[in-house]
Simulated scan of single mutants.
Amino acid sequence: MSTLLEDHQLKEVSVQALTKTAQITRGTFYLHYQDKADFLLQTEKQVIAEWFAHAETITTVADEASATGRVRVVGFDLNAGLQFADQHHQILTTLFDTQFPQFRKTLLDTLIQKLYRFGMSFEGDQENFHMTENEIPASYLASAFMGMIMQWLADDRRFGYEHLGRSFAKLLPDQQATRLSQWFLTTNLNR
């Protein structure tokens, strides 16, 4: 079914064309999806879920407030995340197209929520994580990452994903500016 998504013309594609391309019956399609809009929504959610499943990893980072001086958190391996984007560039390019505005909104919201969860994992409780103090840094980091991916795809991936990751890592604010930038794990980037 992703072949049709890659055509950039899905809004005009019929359920019949979807089922023919996927080599399934209309009954099977409607068993899984209410309609074409539901198919799109589920596909968008699946792509986002797979992206994070590929890139998220448990790691430890410094935390002066913890008893051990370190805390285990879920971070986003920048190298793995960009590798996923490179491998799935056709479907991501399509989903970032303006005909799919819900994808961008859902991805941005997901990035921000993951950054918030990362911030809340320090010191073991939510009382020490102030949403208002972290709203702008989380929005900035999520928007910067998403914008970088969109531009890279629009430029037909002119640079390798490894170079893109190293360049993005250099632009991340240091921990003094916002601890949330540590969510992007950069240790796996080829130096």
Rank of each mutant, 00 (worst) to 15 (best):
T43H: 12
E44A: 11
E44I: 06
Q46D: 13
Q46E: 13
Q46N: 09
V47D: 05
V47I: 12
V47R: 03
I48V: 09
A49G: 10
A49H: 15
E50H: 07
A53H: 14
E56W: 03
E56Y: 04
T57M: 12
V61L: 07
D63N: 14
E64T: 15
A65E: 11
A67Q: 11
R70H: 09
R72A: 14
R72K: 11
R72F: 09
G75A: 15
G75W: 00
F76P: 03
F76Y: 01
D77I: 01
L78S: 04
L78V: 08
G81H: 06
L82N: 06
Q83H: 08
F84C: 00
Q87W: 04
D97P: 00
T98Q: 15
Q99G: 08
F100M: 05
K105T: 14
L107D: 04
L107S: 06
L115M: 00
R117F: 03
G119W: 00
G124T: 04
D125M: 07
Q126P: 03
E127R: 15
F129S: 03
H130F: 09
M131E: 14
N134P: 00
I136F: 13
I136A: 14
A138R: 08
A138D: 05
A138N: 02
S139I: 06
L141Q: 13
L141V: 08
L141H: 12
L141N: 06
A142E: 01
S143F: 08
F145R: 08
M146C: 10
M146T: 15
M146Y: 11
M148L: 15
W152R: 03
W152M: 02
R158I: 13
F159R: 09
E162T: 10
E162H: 05
H163G: 05
